[in-house]
Computed example of a mutant assay.
Amino acid sequence: MITDDDASLYNSFFRVFSKEVSLGEAHHFITIVDKSKSLQEAFKEYQEGRKELTAWGISNGVVDSSISRVAYLKLKKQLENHTFHTEILRNGKTYRKWGNNKITHPLPSIDQGWYNVDCTSDLSSYEPKQIAKMILQVIDKSTNAFLQQIRRRLNILERPLVTARGDKKSYIYSNFNPQYAQYAVTILRTFYIFCLPYRSSNDEQKLTPAQRMGLTNKIFSIQDILYFK
């Protein structure tokens, strides 16, 4: 699971998936982004990051490889001396505790620039190469895309409008009943996951999130959802 740095989210994750976490079958990663950056600053960091990776690859004898491959090799080397947890000795027993020890993602985002990654679950049973593969997938674009859908499709959850004079805000479309907001988001989430296909850079055709996760092999229609039995 990938979230931003929100304690309420990862506390909920550990409560719901406590068994899976204790068995090492579920892990939680955090993306830490500096949202004060402008798009120009983020794009500049994106360009600088690719140049740095290219230079690192040349200096380490990695040639004729893609940027993602160089990023993986660099990250794997960093993880040989990096841990996300600290060990605590108590009553003669050693416990592992989240150390809040983030690492910089080797591939800066084109619209966010450099960002950090942390992991709150225990990764001690994994080798650096396995952790590196997981971290390279830690990005919040899918979450941001869904939040944009919420803002565009649900008027009651839209940001307040600025008045013509620019000195006040209008909440004309605002929702005053949290229960209705929950209903609306649940309906939109179902539609987004099962009915709304899109094409990513790795896809030859448009797929829904449910298809990408292997939950289904078809695109559902609204009628399929409404009359599901």
Rank of each mutant, 00 (worst) to 15 (best):
L75D: 01
L75I: 00
L75Q: 02
K76C: 05
K76N: 07
K77Q: 12
K77F: 03
Q78V: 03
E80C: 08
E80F: 01
E80V: 02
E80S: 09
N81C: 04
N81S: 13
H82G: 03
T83L: 00
T83Q: 10
T83N: 12
T83V: 09
T83G: 02
F84W: 05
F84E: 05
F84N: 01
H85F: 11
H85Y: 06
H85N: 10
T86F: 01
T86E: 03
E87L: 01
I88S: 12
L89W: 00
L89G: 00
L89R: 07
R90E: 15
R90G: 01
R90V: 14
R90I: 10
R90D: 14
N91C: 11
N91E: 15
G92L: 06
G92T: 04
G92E: 08
G92D: 09
K93D: 08
T94Y: 07
T94C: 06
T94H: 05
T94A: 09
Y95N: 09
R96S: 15
R96E: 10
K97R: 15
K97G: 00
W98G: 12
W98S: 13
W98T: 09
W98F: 15
W98C: 08
G99T: 09
G99N: 10
G99S: 13
G99D: 10
G99I: 08
G99F: 05
N100H: 15
N100R: 14
N101K: 14
K102C: 13
K102R: 13
K102G: 05
K102F: 12
K102S: 14
K102M: 10
I103D: 05
I103Y: 07
T104H: 02
T104G: 01
T104W: 06
T104D: 02
T104R: 14
T104Y: 07
H105R: 00
H105T: 00
H105A: 04
H105Q: 02
H105K: 04
H105I: 04
P106T: 05
P106S: 02
P106M: 06
P106L: 04
P108K: 03
S109D: 13
S109I: 01
S109W: 05
I110L: 09
I110E: 15
I110S: 15
I110Y: 08
D111A: 08
D111L: 12
D111N: 13
Q112Y: 11
Q112T: 14
Q112P: 00
G113Y: 00
G113L: 03
W114S: 05
W114I: 08
W114F: 14
W114A: 07
Y115Q: 03
Y115T: 02
N116C: 15
N116G: 05
N116S: 15
V117S: 04
D118A: 07
D118W: 04
D118M: 08
D118P: 11
C119E: 06
C119L: 09
T120Y: 10
T120F: 06
T120A: 11
T120L: 10
T120E: 10
S121D: 07
S121T: 15
D122V: 04
D122Y: 10
D122M: 05
L123S: 07
L123W: 06
L123Q: 08
L123Y: 09
